[in-house]
């Protein structure tokens, strides 16, 4: 349904961009806190002792690829190619799950090495920042899987391309946030 709107734009899409703008401030505050408290931990473990760059690089690559899958899914749905639409939607969700799995492994590893959320300021800021991102990924995966199930049921077609586009907006934004986190948290130590 596209009601006639004064700007000729889809309401949901516009709301979503406003939501993404709002999220900028959410992650902005979290990242600011991380930076402000950088190097202020009184006890270890400190970031260089614990961050696993090769591992996280793979996760980053995985999330980038999921974004690519997402646009391919959108393109497929837009041209009515639901076979590939389903494949790409599922791949996107799968790569999201892989990312989440990576995060679970990473967090478990950190806890084994003695860094919990209460250990020091690095633990506090790191876990809350990346955890919030992980929660966003989780919501995204659920959303993608819902779309995929709808597609399997034959209830998703080119008429719903806007739904897929909006899902994509969310997914790419989550990816973009990771791009910043990867640089700020992992690479700039």
């Amino acid at each position: 349904m596209t009601a006639h709107t004064s700007m000729g734009l889809d309401n949901r899409k516009m709301a979503f961009w406003a939501f993404i703008g709002s999220e900028c401030l959410l992650f902005g505050s979290l990242i600011s806190t991380y930076l402000v408290y950088k190097g202020k931990s009184i006890v270890g473990p400190y970031p260089p002792e614990i961050l696993n760059i090769p591992f996280t690089s793979v996760s980053t690559f995985d999330l980038l690829m999921s974004s690519l899958m997402m646009v391919l899914a959108l393109a497929a749905v837009q041209r009515g190619d639901m076979k590939w639409g389903k494949i790409w939607l599922f791949s996107t969700a799968l790569l999201g799950l892989v990312f989440l799995g990576g995060q679970v492994i990473e967090f478990t590893d950190f806890v084994h090495k003695g860094l919990t959320i209460g250990t020091n300021l690095f633990g506090c800021t790191f876990f809350v920042l990346t955890g919030t991102h992980g929660a966003h990924v989780t919501v995204g995966v659920l959303w993608l899987l819902t779309l995929w199930v709808r597609a399997l049921q034959g209830k998703l077609g080119p008429a719903n391309a806007m739904t897929v586009e909006i899902t994509g907006l969310y997914w790419h934004f989550v990816d973009v946030v990771w791009i910043v986190i990867f640089t700020v948290v992992y690479l700039i130590q």
Partner: peptide, 11 residues
């Protein structure tokens, strides 16, 4: 604008 405005404020 909806992305850029808040992004500028956040930065």
């Amino acid at each position: 604008f909806l992305l850029g405005g808040p992004l500028v404020i956040a930065v």
